[in-house]
């Protein structure tokens, strides 16, 4: 069933399951991904995604349907993920990651090009994790999840100008981190954008 977002929200408020499903279906993956980037654990991320959707649904009465739904849902998921990360404390996550990384097989010697790109993306994630939290968040929203500046501003409840300045600062810091600690990423960037250096 097709409907405008406002119609769908009104119908979901009235208890229309299909309308709610139609609203959230395209957004579920982004919520999971955002939570995963923050929490670094798929099970925790799935919990956050579920809780964000449940909270959104319970708060649907209060939602201003003239606003876009995506930033609102992502804001709920981001807050839940941050709170959960604080509760979990980094050490516990570090240990679970350590256990998992120890149990994962080493990558095969001859990686396909696709596998190399994905490995680089993993390294990039590790580099982003060295940024301050605000910098991490803006990079996740803008580049990992492709949010526009307006959407990022809505998620973070900050002016668009602050998104710009925060992004610029994060990029400068990230560039320095990559130059210093991520030789392969640096080589990849330099190889792709030699004239811009």
């Amino acid at each position: 069933m097709i409907g405008t977002a406002v119609d769908l929200i009104d119908r979901a408020r009235a208890g229309d399951d299909r309308a709610w499903q139609q609203l959230i279906e395209p957004l579920q993956q982004d919520l999971f991904r955002l939570a995963y980037l923050v929490l670094r654990d798929p099970a925790e991320a799935a919990d956050v995604q579920q809780e964000a959707l449940l909270r959104a649904w319970l708060k649907l009465e209060q939602f201003d349907s003239s606003r876009p739904l995506r930033p609102w849902l992502m804001q709920i998921a981001l807050n839940l993920a941050r709170n959960r990360r604080r509760t979990l404390r980094r050490a516990w996550a570090r240990v679970t990651r350590l256990i998992r990384s120890e149990s994962q097989p080493e990558p095969a010697a001859g990686l396909s090009e696709r596998a190399i790109v994905r490995e680089q993306a993993q390294q990039l994630w590790r580099a982003v994790q060295q940024l301050p939290v605000k910098g991490q968040t803006i990079v996740y929203l803008r580049y990992f999840l492709d949010l526009t500046e307006e959407e990022a501003a809505a998620v973070l409840e900050i002016p668009k100008g602050t998104v710009k300045s925060r992004t610029s600062r994060a990029l400068t810091q990230l560039r320095g981190i990559i130059q210093r600690d991520f030789v392969e990423l640096e080589a990849d960037f330099v190889g792709k954008f030699p004239k811009r250096l």
């Binding site: 993956q29 999971f32 991904r33 995963y36 798929p42 099970a43 991320a45 799935a46 995604q49 790109v117 994905r118 680089q120 993306a121 993993q122 990039l124 994630w125 990079v139 580049y143 990992f144 492709d146 610029s168 990029l171 400068t172 990230l174 560039r175 990423l185 990849d188 960037f189 792709k192 954008f193 811009r196 250096l197």
Partner: peptide, 23 residues
């Protein structure tokens, strides 16, 4: 210019991030 290039590279690389399957 450098920031634009870095931004483009960042977006392209981040897009390839291998998210785990959702439990």
């Amino acid at each position: 210019n450098s920031q634009n290039g870095f931004e483009q590279w960042l977006a392209e690389t981040a897009r390839e991030f291998p998210y785990p399957p959702q439990p």
